[in-house]
């Protein structure tokens, strides 16, 4: 990938993020500090990992509204496995990830085989998974103590927790799969025009189901980091997280109509949302202004992305014709 391409693809989003960091840096003396950055690094992994799956789902022109509830269910299962079943940590993590994967598989299979729009299926799963999370925990927050602590602790010398490193790896792998593999190519193609892909002889059902299953697995993984950061499994966790994830992905320029998207830009979208949240809290912004500002930034970022098509295309053309 050459630097021009890199420039047009990622620069606008990164600039928005840096702009926010700068803005809060001016407004607060303590924002641009290693402590704040370390806090952000520990906050973003769950949403970043979910946004990775959500990007894939939106690329195939689907949507997954159940991720918040799935996160709560996987988190609940992690708590149950650790506390009630007394599983070792690794096994408990596997239980959580598989719980997420099965939920995703359910979404995908129902939506593809029964041809129900994923919006409706996952809206149903949003309720089902939340209910199951309450059942699994008996509606009680489970305190997990120090069992998960190592995963939340910053790594010595790096200042970021392992969850952040894993999230970055997931995102790089995700972007690689999307741009370099046949699987990623097919997902983009399916999202662009499924009918044409089918008539080109490419089977689509399993690929679509797999995207939902992957999103579920990633949500399960996100639940592990989410739970480890809070030290507790809360059946009320992740309420509204689907909207944060969709917002981050859309800020990153992924099309709700399918066929277009970038996982790296989704990650920057997550950074923007998290930075905004942390910054507004740090400057002690009032509740109403927090909401208004967050909404404005989402609209602004999406507008810039929409303009990018025109403005940066022109820039690209000028590169080509040598007038720049």
């Amino acid at each position: 990938m050459n630097y021009k391409r890199w420039f047009t693809d990622y620069a606008p989003m990164i600039l928005i993020w840096l702009g926010l960091v700068l803005l809060f840096g001016i407004l607060s003396d303590n924002f641009v500090t290693s402590r704040t950055l370390a806090t952000l690094a520990s906050q973003v992994p769950p949403l970043a990992i979910i946004a990775c799956g959500m990007t894939l789902v939106l690329i195939i022109a689907g949507i997954d509204l159940s991720v918040g509830s799935t996160l709560a269910l996987a988190s609940a299962m992690l708590g149950v496995a650790l506390v009630d079943w007394e599983f070792p940590l690794i096994l408990a993590i596997v239980v959580a990830v598989i719980t997420g994967g099965l939920t995703g598989l359910f979404n995908g299979a129902i939506s593809v085989y029964l041809r129900i729009p994923s919006f409706i299926v996952t809206l149903g799963t949003l309720e089902i998974a939340r209910g199951l999370a309450y059942l699994a925990t008996d509606s009680q927050t489970k305190y997990l103590g120090v069992a998960l602590e190592p995963m939340a602790r910053p790594l010595p010398g790096l200042g970021v927790p392992i969850s952040f490193l894993i999230a970055v790896v997931v995102i790089i792998i995700g972007q690689f799969i999307l741009t370099r593999t046949t699987y990623g190519r097919y997902l983009i193609a399916i999202g662009t025009n499924e009918s044409a892909v089918r008539l080109a002889g490419v089977p689509t059902a399993r690929k679509k189901i797999s995207v939902f299953a992957i999103t579920g697995l990633l949500t399960g993984l996100a639940a592990v980091f989410f739970t480890s950061r809070l030290g507790s499994a809360d059946p009320n966790a992740g309420v509204g997280m689907e909207l944060s994830a969709i917002a981050a992905v859309v800020i990153g320029g992924t099309s709700l109509m399918g066929g277009r998207g970038s996982i790296i830009n989704s990650f920057i979208g997550v950074l923007i949302i998290a930075t905004l949240g942390a910054g507004l809290a740090q400057i002690g912004a009032s509740e109403p202004s927090k909401r208004v500002v967050t909404g404005l930034v989402i609209v602004l970022a999406v507008t810039i992305d929409a303009l990018r098509g025109g403005f940066f295309q022109k820039l690209k053309m000028r590169f080509k014709t040598g007038t720049l």
């Binding site: 046949t182 190519r185 097919y186 009918s195 044409a196 066929g259 277009r260």
Partner: peptide, 29 residues
Amino acid sequence: KQDGLLLNKSVSLNTTLSTLERFSKSGLI
């Protein structure tokens, strides 16, 4: 336009859609 092409995608993506596996090795294009 409806059944044949992926309109906003490249010539090469459209051309190799049915034969992509041939231009890939263990899933990598």
